[in-house]
Structures are given as structure tokens and as C-alpha cells.
Measured scan of single mutants.
Amino acid sequence: HYVEVNGKKIQATSAEEAEKIAKKFAKIYNATVLDLGNYYKVT
């Protein structure tokens, strides 16, 4: 599981952790979290 933010991949140990990381970055960048199955993308 990982999160992609601005083209950078951030490794996460679980889907739950990946979701938390994605939501945190989405809040910082006022962005949207896309759940793409095996990873989250912040756009």
C-alpha cells in the first residue's frame, strides 16, 4: 500500500495507514483523495 502525492510515492504498512496519510496530505494541499484500489492518489 502506498500514497502518491505530487508524483512521489509514500509507502504505508496498511490500507488504513495509507488512507490516513492520503487524507492528511489532501487536507494540507486542499486536494482530493482518489482510492485506486491498491493505492491512494492525492490530486
Results as ranks from 00 to 15, higher is better:
12 A>Y: 07
22 A>K: 01
25 F>G: 01
4 E>A: 04
36 L>G: 05
32 T>N: 09
8 K>S: 09
36 L>R: 06
17 E>K: 05
19 E>M: 15
19 E>W: 15
41 K>S: 09
6 N>P: 02
6 N>R: 08
39 Y>M: 06
20 K>G: 07
1 H>S: 08
15 A>S: 10
34 L>C: 10
37 G>D: 06
33 V>K: 01
36 L>Y: 14
18 A>Q: 00
5 V>E: 00
43 T>C: 12
30 N>Q: 09
42 V>P: 04
9 K>L: 13
29 Y>I: 06
35 D>W: 15
32 T>F: 10
43 T>P: 04
30 N>C: 07
27 K>W: 13
13 T>D: 13
40 Y>K: 04
18 A>Y: 02
5 V>L: 09
12 A>K: 01
9 K>N: 06
33 V>C: 06
8 K>Q: 12
35 D>S: 09
21 I>D: 00
36 L>D: 04
11 Q>Y: 15
39 Y>T: 06
30 N>Y: 05
10 I>D: 03
9 K>I: 15
10 I>K: 01
14 S>L: 03
41 K>Y: 09
18 A>S: 04
36 L>H: 07
33 V>Y: 11
30 N>G: 14
24 K>F: 15
18 A>K: 01
26 A>I: 07
12 A>L: 07
9 K>H: 10
40 Y>I: 08
26 A>N: 03
34 L>R: 06
31 A>S: 08
42 V>L: 07
40 Y>V: 04
19 E>Y: 15
34 L>N: 06
42 V>I: 10
12 A>F: 10
7 G>I: 01
27 K>D: 12
32 T>P: 06
30 N>L: 07
2 Y>W: 15
13 T>S: 14
38 N>S: 13
39 Y>D: 03
12 A>I: 04
17 E>G: 04
11 Q>K: 12
10 I>G: 01
39 Y>E: 04
13 T>E: 12
32 T>G: 06
38 N>H: 14
15 A>P: 10
33 V>L: 07
33 V>N: 00
40 Y>N: 02
19 E>P: 00
29 Y>H: 08
6 N>E: 06
27 K>G: 09
23 K>Y: 14
30 N>H: 12
38 N>L: 09
20 K>E: 12
4 E>M: 12
7 G>E: 04
7 G>T: 02
9 K>Y: 11
4 E>V: 12
20 K>P: 00
32 T>E: 11
8 K>C: 14
28 I>D: 09
7 G>N: 06
28 I>H: 11
1 H>W: 15
35 D>T: 08
40 Y>A: 02
35 D>P: 07
6 N>Q: 07
31 A>H: 07
3 V>A: 05
17 E>W: 07
41 K>W: 06
18 A>W: 01
18 A>L: 02
20 K>L: 11
15 A>K: 15
17 E>F: 05
41 K>E: 07
9 K>V: 14
28 I>A: 10
18 A>N: 00
8 K>V: 14
32 T>M: 10
10 I>S: 02
4 E>H: 05
38 N>A: 10
43 T>S: 10
3 V>L: 05
17 E>Q: 10
31 A>T: 10
10 I>P: 01
17 E>R: 07
16 E>K: 12
27 K>Q: 14
18 A>V: 02
30 N>E: 06
23 K>V: 10
4 E>D: 07
13 T>V: 12
37 G>Q: 05
2 Y>N: 00
12 A>N: 01
7 G>W: 04
14 S>W: 06
42 V>Q: 02
22 A>S: 03
15 A>F: 08
15 A>G: 07
16 E>Y: 11
6 N>M: 14
35 D>M: 13
15 A>D: 06
11 Q>C: 13
27 K>Y: 13
28 I>Y: 15
1 H>G: 03
40 Y>F: 14
38 N>W: 12
6 N>V: 05
4 E>P: 00
23 K>N: 12
35 D>I: 14
12 A>H: 02
42 V>Y: 01
26 A>C: 02
7 G>A: 04
1 H>L: 08
4 E>K: 04
19 E>L: 15
38 N>C: 11
18 A>M: 06
10 I>A: 01
13 T>A: 13
17 E>C: 13
35 D>L: 13
25 F>M: 09
14 S>F: 03
25 F>I: 13
21 I>M: 10
43 T>R: 05
25 F>N: 02
32 T>S: 10
23 K>G: 06
13 T>I: 11
41 K>D: 04
42 V>G: 03
11 Q>H: 15
22 A>L: 04
25 F>C: 11
36 L>N: 07
2 Y>L: 04
29 Y>Q: 05
13 T>G: 14
37 G>S: 05
37 G>T: 04
23 K>D: 09
4 E>L: 14
40 Y>C: 07
41 K>T: 07
28 I>M: 14
29 Y>N: 06
5 V>T: 02
38 N>I: 09
26 A>G: 08
20 K>R: 14
43 T>Q: 11
8 K>W: 13
27 K>P: 03
11 Q>S: 11
42 V>F: 01
8 K>R: 13
13 T>N: 14
32 T>H: 11
25 F>K: 01
33 V>P: 02
16 E>W: 11
14 S>Y: 03
10 I>M: 06
21 I>R: 01
37 G>N: 05
37 G>M: 05
4 E>G: 00
20 K>H: 10
35 D>F: 15
19 E>C: 14
7 G>F: 04
33 V>G: 01
22 A>E: 01
43 T>M: 11
33 V>S: 01
19 E>K: 13
8 K>M: 13
20 K>W: 11
16 E>I: 10
18 A>C: 08
15 A>Y: 08
32 T>I: 14
10 I>H: 06
17 E>S: 07
30 N>D: 08
34 L>F: 07
21 I>K: 02
2 Y>P: 01
9 K>M: 12
3 V>G: 01
28 I>Q: 11
40 Y>H: 05
14 S>V: 03
34 L>K: 08
3 V>F: 03
5 V>N: 01
14 S>R: 02
34 L>Q: 11
7 G>S: 04
31 A>E: 03
29 Y>R: 03
26 A>Q: 08
37 G>W: 05
39 Y>H: 10
20 K>Y: 11
